[in-house]
């Protein structure tokens, strides 16, 4: 088992390493302009500079840990992460009760679904002009856009989750003497969690996409802002370093969410459902 994981990791590293080698060869041989595509080594150097603290360590300015995390990259990543979390929470907290209501009540569904169907296809990006008009610059418009991105996946999956609850569970619960409130809380809600959690996962993914875009327009820190800023100075090595950081952060968030989901769904037959 353990041996297999190592082998799989090794196997997974082959293609990226080959690509890196080709990339490095192309840059070193002068085949491509370093302004257009800098070499992997240049990216790595820039990445380190981006990550490392800007000032030398000075105890007068606070503790060692604070200094260690004072690099620009860490600050940007924290800024982006803060917006993702806040935006996702706002979106999900609004979507969850609405989805539960729309899934459980036909009347609520009939009242709200036409509106949802019209608004849902509008990408959050299309709200950028309005969000600036409404919220100005800074975090508020960004969080607004991110919450929109997270809202619909959570909503749609919650509705589907409540609707697919097998009638046999409801019958069993009624037979065991449970009233409507108990059935909702202890049967419908847990039975819908696999769907709700996959909505959460998609919602966080969308939030992460939207945060990058929103940082390109409304704020002056964060990973999205930084790669746009780097473009203005033609720092293509920093652009790539920023992109890879975005990729790694997205991967870390998604695997964290998947871990939490798997724990919450340990009763479930399949892990991915």
């Amino acid at each position: 088992m353990r041996r297999n994981t190592w082998l799989a990791a090794l196997q997974g590293a082959v293609v990226p390493l080959v690509l890196l080698a080709i990339w490095q060869a192309a840059s070193s041989s002068g085949l491509v302009n370093a302004k257009i595509l800098p070499s992997p080594v240049a990216v790595a150097v820039r990445w380190w500079a981006y990550l490392a603290p800007a000032e030398p360590y000075d105890p007068a300015n606070g503790g060692y840990i604070a200094w260690l995390f004072s690099g620009e990259l860490i600050m940007d990543a924290m800024g982006s992460l803060y917006r993702v979390v806040m935006g996702f929470l706002v979106g999900a907290i609004l979507a969850l009760p609405m989805g539960l209501a729309m899934g459980a009540s036909r009347a609520a569904f009939r009242w709200l679904n036409p509106l949802v169907e019209v608004l849902r296809p509008i990408p959050p990006i299309a709200y950028i002009p309005l969000s600036i008009l409404w919220f100005g610059l800074g975090n508020p418009p960004a969080i607004f856009l991110i919450s929109l991105g997270a809202f619909f996946p959570v909503l749609v999956n919650t509705i589907a989750g409540v609707r697919q609850v097998d009638g046999i569970y409801l019958r069993a619960a009624r037979n065991l003497g449970a009233g409507p409130l108990t059935i909702f809380r202890r049967v419908m809600l847990p039975a819908a969690t696999p769907y709700i959690l996959s909505g959460v996962r998609i919602g966080i993914g969308t939030a992460f996409i939207v945060v990058i875009v929103s940082e390109m327009i409304a704020v002056n820190n964060g990973l999205g802002f930084r790669i746009l800023e780097a473009r203005e100075y033609f720092w293509s090595d920093k652009i790539i370093a920023g992109m890879l950081t975005i990729g790694l952060l997205g991967l870390a968030i998604d695997s964290g969410v998947t871990r939490i989901n798997n724990h919450l769904l340990r009763w479930h037959r399949g892990l991915e459902h």
Binding site: R171, A172, A173, R186, P190, A191, R269
Partner: peptide, 9 residues
């Protein structure tokens, strides 16, 4: 019930 109808969670 024939399908047991246990709450899987």
């Amino acid at each position: 019930f024939q399908e047991y109808a246990l709450f899987p969670w």
